[in-house]
Nucleic acid binder design. Structure first.
Length: 271
DNA sequence: AAGGTTACCTGCCCGC
DNA sequence: TGCGGGCAGGTAACCT
């Protein structure tokens, strides 16, 4: 699922169905995912008043001044099903709602995690305290990006994938943003002109916005009823295209490993 | 102490 | 057909 556009699309789809609903029961099929799951009993009889997002975290705001925080990890999915049918493969949590539907959490790799946090204390919680700006807000700007790049020898790709600097970018959108900005993923962050960082700031915002727009058509279906896979189908310019021709110049797209992840780039267009 | 590597988990795809 | 290896959209705990 989950880079920012996917999480945002899931958020929007869930908000539509969950706001105003009450939670009747919560059933867990295992005690922990990446971390131990919280005690869900405080959720019982609470109303969901908002479904928000910060970084890649979904925030279910309850009317008891607590927030159910959920991270999808790599493979986490939420599905809304009519009624309380049997749990499917890798389904770990089932939340029964007052409208007769049930919200199911499924996660094959179990890298996802959840917590129940006092809403007032959300921003000081360790998951949130160190997060950088939202990329689509004015807090993320050429100035803020330049500030975190200054003096850094780390590759620009790892800098923009570090949530302390800007949240929401994963392996795909980092690669696509750098391609559009013409910046080589391995270039030292501190060695990029202010002007080029300003361009990168713009391409990050563009790419994420376009992805949210495109994601709406596919992933919202997935949230709807019976959970069709609904994978985000976007035409990537470099991600996953190693060995294929660059759509801009025709040179062969390369793949390198950075921080244990694949990076894709055009050796001619990106410097 | 910044920067790099590894681990957490299951599934899938590819080559032998 | 079966099996092993490598890889997968995230995060954080380790090393150096």
């Amino acid at each position: 699922m989950p880079e920012l556009p996917e999480v945002e699309t899931v958020r929007a789809g869930l908000a539509q169905h969950l706001i105003g609903r009450n939670i009747l029961t919560v059933t867990c099929h295992r005690q922990s995912l990446r971390y131990p799951l919280p005690d869900f009993t405080p959720l019982i009889d609470q109303q969901i008043v908002a479904v928000n997002r910060r970084s890649k975290y979904l925030l279910f705001v309850l009317d008891n001044d607590q927030t159910l925080v959920w991270h999808l990890g790599m493979t986490g999915q939420f599905h809304l099903l009519p009624g309380l049918s049997d749990s499917g493969l890798h389904e770990h949590v089932c939340i029964a709602l007052s409208d007769g539907q049930s919200l199911r959490y499924r996660d094959a790799r179990r890298f996802g995690y959840a917590g129940l946090i006092d809403s007032a204390a959300l921003l000081v919680h360790p998951w949130f305290a160190t997060l950088g700006p939202e990329p689509l807000s004015d807090d993320f700007s050429s100035d803020s990006l330049a500030a975190v790049c200054r003096g850094r020898k780390a590759p620009i790709k790892t800098v923009i994938m570090d949530a302390a600097n800007v949240v929401g970018l994963g392996n795909i959108y980092a690669a696509e943003s750098l391609f559009r900005a013409g910046i080589h993923p391995a270039r030292a962050a501190g060695n990029i002109s202010k002007k080029r960082l300003a361009l990168l700031t713009d391409t990050i915002k563009q790419v994420l916005q376009e992805a949210i727009k495109a994601g709406g058509s596919t992933i919202s279906d997935f949230v709807k009823v019976d959970g069709k896979p609904g994978y985000f189908s976007h035409s990537f310019q470099v991600y996953g295209r190693a060995g294929e021709p660059c759509l801009h110049c025709g040179k062969v797209i390369k793949r390198i490993t950075q921080a244990g992840r694949s990076s894709f780039y055009c050796p001619s267009c990106q410097r």
